[in-house]
Design a binder for these strands. Structure first.
Length: 118
DNA sequence: TGATTGACCAACT
DNA sequence: CAGTTGGCCAATC
């Protein structure tokens, strides 16, 4: 039995984010089945920064593609720099073409469907 | 131990 | 159109 907590799930999903891709807090929460806990996703990121979880929290932004948590990355543009380093264009702390970089766990991971019935 | 906050999102007023 | 509230789970005061 995986007595896994909501946080643990968030870490797992965020770690699965491929290079050069980003996702939103709500998307992860929605994938976990609790879209209401989108705030918790950001919380998990905050702890992941202070901890040794090794989570690419810089790849997680809000629904508008804005780096809401950049202040937690040392208070500098570190978060933006990390994303730009992955080939993502950012202007005014906002991801340009966020939709083309958006990585939806419920779609990319496909919950097991290579073929599928759909 | 109880109340509040916290990197959000969406609906309602 | 803009402001407020509700929801979710966990950690901190």
């Amino acid at each position: 039995m995986e007595e896994i907590s909501f946080f643990e799930k968030v870490y797992e999903v965020v770690k699965q984010i491929p290079f050069g891709r980003v996702t939103s807090y709500g998307a992860v929460a929605n994938y976990l089945g609790t879209k209401g806990s989108a705030r918790m996703v950001g919380w998990a990121m905050n702890k992941s920064l202070s901890a040794e979880y090794n989570i690419p929290a810089h790849r997680v932004v809000n629904r508008a593609g804005v780096l809401t948590g950049k202040h937690h990355f040392g208070g500098t543009d570190l978060m933006k720099q990390l994303l730009e380093d992955e080939g993502i264009k950012i202007v005014d702390d906002t991801i340009v073409g966020f939709e083309q970089y958006f990585w939806d766990p419920g779609v990319e991971l496909t919950v097991g469907t290579v073929g599928g019935s759909r």
